[in-house]
């Protein structure tokens, strides 16, 4: 997305002092000195995260008009609205690093910025709404609970707010899953099919394996991250396996087995080729998602223009009155 950044020569004394602050567990605030690379990494992470929240509205928005009851429809609208809010919390945090939200949105719309690859998969049935809440939001919570301790204050604060709200997302999803799993054979088959399709992409949400994660060491040293991708992925699997068993659903992994020694649920190999293909823009819905975002942005332009024109007129009028 960006051009290769020129290496910035940082003052070694300032760098050491910065690392010492991190090691003491201090929180870095917007006006504090920070290495250019820290600023850049956080801008990248936070803008990708914000974009993911915003694009994440699309697969679910797809089902609002077809929700099976008013109760389900209200919940889904509230959840999708939350995702918009979460995007705004994180854009707001990213702007404290000195970037402009309009530029970040431009980067998303013209395809330079990345967002979570999970949202490039299609939502084929109503059961997907349940499984997304359960698995996708569940995975996001595991990730975000740790990010709530990130060293950058505005990011951590946004995550705390988000984690509180995501619990509703996960529970409403699991309720849908449990209801379908206890329903007719057709309903049960539908939810099992959704689990089969979403399980592996959910595991990929934690990012590349530690052996193949170029940014991890630096982000851990700066305490932006506190756990590695693989540690978080394992935590998610351990949490989820019993939840699947509780509603009598299976996870599509023949290698899944409990290891008494490590107390972990060992899982099979992830198809990283698929992961990289989706990131490169070749997932089932990449093009559709970006087109929907662009259309939404263009269709909203007249509202922004009208609000700006109103504010300008109003501002001019009050300036005249004051004179």
């Amino acid at each position: 997305m960006d051009q290769k950044p020129q290496a910035v020569a940082e003052d070694p004394a300032k760098l050491a002092e910065f690392q010492a602050r991190i090691d003491r567990g201090e929180s870095i605030e917007p006006k504090d000195w920070m290495p250019e690379r820290y600023r850049r990494q956080l801008t990248r992470m936070m803008s990708q995260h914000a974009h993911s929240e915003v694009v994440g509205m699309l697969p679910e928005g797809n089902w609002i008009t077809r929700a099976p009851s008013l109760r389900r429809k209200m919940s889904l609208i509230a959840k999708v609205q939350d995702e918009a809010g979460h995007g705004l919390y994180i854009y707001c945090g990213a702007e404290t690093l000195g970037v402009d939200r309009a530029d970040l949105i431009d980067q998303l719309l013209d395809g330079r910025a990345k967002y979570s690859s999970i949202f490039n998969y299609p939502t084929l049935s109503w059961a997907d709404m349940g499984v997304i809440g359960w698995l996708v939001d569940g995975a996001a919570i595991v990730n975000q609970t740790v990010l709530a301790k990130a060293s950058y204050g505005p990011y951590a604060r946004a995550m705390i707010r988000i984690c509180k709200e995501e619990n509703f997302h996960k529970r409403q999803g699991y309720e849908i899953v449990a209801t379908l799993a206890n329903g007719t054979p057709a309903q049960k088959a539908m939810v099992q099919d959704a689990v089969n399709r979403w399980w592996w992409p959910s595991l990929m949400m934690f990012g590349p394996s530690d052996t193949d994660s170029p940014n991890s060491a630096e982000l851990l040293r700066w305490k932006v991250k506190h756990k590695t991708n693989d540690e978080l992925r394992q935590r998610f699997v351990n949490l989820t396996v019993p939840q699947a068993a509780a509603v009598d659903l299976t996870l599509p992994d023949p290698d899944l087995r409990y290891d008494e020694a490590t107390k972990n649920w060992e899982f099979g190999a992830i198809d990283w080729a698929e992961f990289h293909e989706v990131i490169r823009g070749n997932g089932p819905c990449n093009r559709e998602r970006l087109e929907a975002r662009r259309a939404a942005h263009e269709n909203g332009r007249w509202v922004r223009d009208a609000a700006a024109a109103y504010a300008a007129k109003h501002g001019a009028a009050s300036a005249t009155n004051a004179a």
Binding site: D100, R101, A102, I105, D106, H297, R301, R304, D305
Partner: peptide, 9 residues
Amino acid sequence: RPPSTDTQG
């Protein structure tokens, strides 16, 4: 690229 011309207010 130049900064965005879109208004976010």
